[in-house]
């Protein structure tokens, strides 16, 4: 059995979470609230130390920003902070609408960056990987053909502007079969990942805490 207080604490919290399998109880609630508090604090500290200080505080204290030199650079650094402070107007009933301005900046930058990236990563690159030369010189080519047909059938299933009838309907049916195999495989993977985590926790309790297994 371990004499490390850290291991005892981790084991206690592990059992607190597992107690939810019986029913919701104060031990589970304790661990849950502890987890929320610790992870919020952890996230805040990591964000401040890894992001905020290097990209905001350090350039300000040096008086220059490597991205844009001179006074303009410092202004461009302070400006988003001023916008960010406007978010706190959300706590005032009267001035809550002012928080929309920083949110608009976040959404604007986010959507502006998302449009080309979504098209590039999710459509163009997927098409590039799907439409490949097929020479039937190896089994790999047969697989590539299967993937190309499968992708077409899957997309047809998602296309609702035409009624799923005849050849189109047949391809849509094949599409849903392909999608179901995909979902089944993903589900199988997810189950195995969760079971693997469960085994990890049981090994922690049996080996690191109780020392029952070697």
């Amino acid at each position: 059995m371990s004499f490390d207080p850290g291991v005892w604490l981790a084991a206690f919290l592990t059992l607190c979470i597992f107690s939810f399998l019986y029913k919701d109880n104060p031990f589970y609630k304790f661990a849950e609230h502890l987890s929320v508090g610790i992870s919020a604090g952890y996230g805040l500290v990591i964000y401040i130390r890894v992001t905020f200080i290097p990209i905001f505080i350090d350039p300000l204290s040096r008086g220059q920003w490597h991205m844009v030199p001179g006074t303009l650079g410092i202004f461009l650094l302070i400006f988003p902070a001023l916008i960010g402070i406007l978010l706190f107007s959300r706590f005032s009933r009267k001035w809550a609408y002012i928080a929309r301005y920083p949110i608009a900046v976040i959404w604007g930058i986010g959507t502006g960056a998302a449009i080309p990236l979504a098209l590039q990563n999710f459509i163009v690159r997927q098409l590039q990987a799907t439409i490949v030369p097929i020479t039937f010189s190896s089994w790999q080519d047969l697989g590539s053909l299967f993937i190309a047909v499968g992708v077409a059938c899957g997309l047809i299933y998602f296309f609702f502007s035409k009624e799923h009838k005849g050849v189109f309907g047949g391809m849509a049916t094949a599409g849903i079969w392909i999608l179901m195999i995909g979902f089944g495989s993903t589900f199988g993977f997810t189950v195995m990942a969760r079971v693997s985590l469960l085994i990890g926790r049981v090994i922690f309790l049996m080996k690191d805490w109780l020392g029952i297994i070697g």
């Binding site: 999710f122 459509i123 992708v151 059938c153």
Partner: peptide, 23 residues
């Protein structure tokens, strides 16, 4: 094979949906 085909079809749908929503 089938899993890759399904994922690609879903990714393309997600891409179109994301671009349309962003627009």
């Amino acid at each position: 094979y089938p899993n890759v085909a399904a994922k690609r079809a879903i990714f393309m749908g997600v891409g179109m949906g994301a671009a349309a929503t962003a627009l």
